[in-house]
Design a protein around this nucleic acid. Sequence first.
DNA 1: GGCCAGGACACCA
DNA 2: TGGTGTCATGGC
Length: 209
Amino acid sequence: MRRHFGHQNWWPGRTRFEVILGALLTQNTSWANVEKALANLRQARALSPEKLTSLPAGRLARLLRPSGYFRQKTRAVQGFLRHLNNGYQGSLARLLRRPTAELRAELLALSGIGEETADSILLYAAGRPVFVIDAYTRRVLARHGLASAQARYDELQSFFERHLPADPALYNDFHAQLVAVGKTFCHRERPDCAACPLGVELERSHARA
DNA sequence: GGCCAGGACACCA
DNA sequence: TGGTGTCATGGC
């Protein structure tokens, strides 16, 4: 996959805080729309926990509007900031220093943060070896017969974590590569498996076996 | 004009 | 536990 697409350099974001905001804002939303919202925040000089905390909900909602679901996302962002301020004196470094399992549970307890968003934060902002499962990953695995379409999140996650070394840098780009494969070759209506680098490699490996 | 995008959650049986 | 509706903008 990397030979075909090159390193994907995920996650786009200048700071860890920006990565976290991106994880919250990209839920069921194209990254292009997320970038518009992040650009709004940057222009408003609100891309830090302190500045963002001081923003009234109405103003924050207007800035987040291009990313869609802006009312929900406003609540999610403010909920995260409340947790950060109440539990960690607003220090992202302190929060992200928590042991992986505890941090994951804390994130999941916040409203607006589910498994994928929590794991994106763990991997891309905190650098933990946690494999992220998203809709593209599901589609690619199902398309290649590597997992059932109904498999649970944790089943798919352990599939990767069992078979790959626990290396955050590897997980990082591996997930991004799967998304690239999903976007490029695993279309719902007209998948192009013949040209798919993953499909070709799997065919080779089956032929060898 | 319809479909979909790097989901989460409430509600229901 | 599993299925369904809702949330919303913007690009194609």
